[in-house]
């Protein structure tokens, strides 16, 4: 299981990376915005995408839309971890096909719960 973590703040990438490691996911790659994330995804081999929304260059929602329109990536599970908390934004992300939405600041338990829920759906 290879997981791509996309966030423009390196501290947040480290936090998510360490939480994932704690959950048993040790194979992670990082990118600091959508633009640098997309080539990594297109190269293949990524099983799960965790992305922030507000990033320079290419935002998380743009990345999500790009993922869903690419036939090779359309089914990739995507978890959004973001400080964006407007209701219309959450709805927008849902409509764009996000699999889970966690708002910052979050707890380790919340992240764990959302990730497990996403995998449960995929497996079931």
């Amino acid at each position: 299981m290879k997981i791509l973590i996309v966030d423009d703040f390196s501290t947040m990438r480290r936090i998510i990376k360490n939480l994932l490691k704690d959950l048993g996911f040790t194979n992670t790659v990082e990118a600091d915005d959508g633009k640098s994330a997309l080539p990594i995804l297109e190269k293949g081999g990524v099983d799960f995408l965790v992305t922030d929304w507000n990033m320079p260059g290419m935002t998380g929602i743009e990345l999500l839309k790009a993922v869903r329109t690419n036939p090779d990536l359309a089914n990739l599970p995507v978890l959004m971890v973001t400080a964006e908390a407007k209701r219309e934004q959450i709805i927008m992300a849902a409509q764009a096909g996000v699999n889970g939405y966690v708002i910052k600041p979050f707890t380790a338990a919340t992240l764990k719960e959302k990730i497990e829920k996403i995998f449960e759906r995929i497996d079931g």
Binding site: D7, F9, T11, M12, R14, I15, N18, L19, D22, A83, K104, P105, F106, T107, A108
Partner: peptide
């Protein structure tokens, strides 16, 4: 883990 999570402030305050 608590110390790890506490570092999330840097992103939000940034």
């Amino acid at each position: 883990t608590e110390i790890l999570m506490a570092q999330g402030f840097q992103d939000i305050t940034g």
